[in-house]
């Protein structure tokens, strides 16, 4: 998520409480609704060019995994082709990857499943460790080949083993990693293309989701009829042909 507007808000507010006798980063509002043009910070569009967090091998591994979780077939592109790795790379480079919005104070304990996330490693670190463990396992087991070099059948078998918690891969916690991975790949396939995945709205076209059209009143008198208009992303109609150059 973007940080710049927060600092603009802090800047605006830095002067607001001076009347109270001292500097403060808070904000006083009275007399009129505050509004500045374009203050609503849209997320910056993910742009092309290399990896911000992943190493080349990590990126290739995520692309290969995404292509198995969401395979290319007659229904449309696979997760890797749709940009799930770019999506995840940008997410891991931001506040999601570092868990900076979450409560990360100790002491850390394992807890019950009902108590939810208790891992002190944020997603970026978890991906680094887990992909490294998976690729080390593949090299040892499949004649020096890392995950991207395995056959689709070998990849599927390994992913099923991780999903079911029986991979036995040293240094990998199967279930928590797989849950995070599956969630993130689905996010990459179905989130607005502005985040780098869902390329050419492949995920939305699969479902028939019209995106951000925001007004369907004309359809109310036509229940049980298909919606025909093509999807629109946050960045507008021109983005229908937008692609991340690699």
């Amino acid at each position: 998520m973007p940080d710049a507007p927060t600092s603009r808000r802090l800047l605006l507010s830095a002067t607001a409480l001076i009347a109270l006798g001292g500097p403060a980063a808070a904000r006083s509002i009275r007399g009129a609704l505050p509004w500045s043009p374009n203050e609503a910070y849209p997320p910056p569009r993910v742009t092309a060019g290399g990896w911000l967090y992943f190493t080349a091998e990590e990126a290739a591994s995520i692309e290969a995994i995404a292509n198995r979780l969401i395979p290319a077939d007659a229904l449309g592109p696979g997760g890797g082709e749709a940009g799930c790795a770019i999506y995840l790379d940008r997410q891991l480079a931001g506040p999601y990857g570092s868990s900076s919005w979450l409560y990360m104070q100790g002491p850390f304990a394992r807890g019950t499943p009902e108590q939810g996330l208790q891992d002190e490693r944020p997603p970026a670190a978890l991906y680094r460790q887990s992909l490294s463990a998976i690729n080390a396992h593949c090299r040892a087991r499949f004649g020096g080949r890392a995950f991207p070099a395995l056959s689709p059948e070998e990849q599927d078998a390994l992913l099923h083993a991780i999903d079911e918690g029986r991979s036995g891969i040293a240094g990998l916690e199967d279930k928590p990693f797989f849950e995070m991975l599956l969630q993130n790949v689905m996010e990459g396939f179905f989130a607005d293309p502005i985040y780098g995945g869902n390329r050419d709205m492949a995920g939305w076209k699969l479902l028939g989701f019209p995106g951000t059209r925001y007004d369907y009143r004309e359809m109310l008198d036509r229940p049980n009829q298909p919606y025909r208009d093509p999807p629109v992303p946050l960045s507008g109609l021109r983005a229908a042909s937008w692609q991340v150059a690699r």
């Binding site: 509004w35 500045s36 203050e39 609503a40 849209p42 996010e187 179905f190 985040y195 951000t212 946050l234």
Partner: peptide
């Protein structure tokens, strides 16, 4: 108008 304009409000991920 500042925080939920239709150009940014319908963002499921965010």
């Amino acid at each position: 108008p500042t925080d939920f304009p239709p150009t940014t409000a319908p963002d499921e991920l965010r």
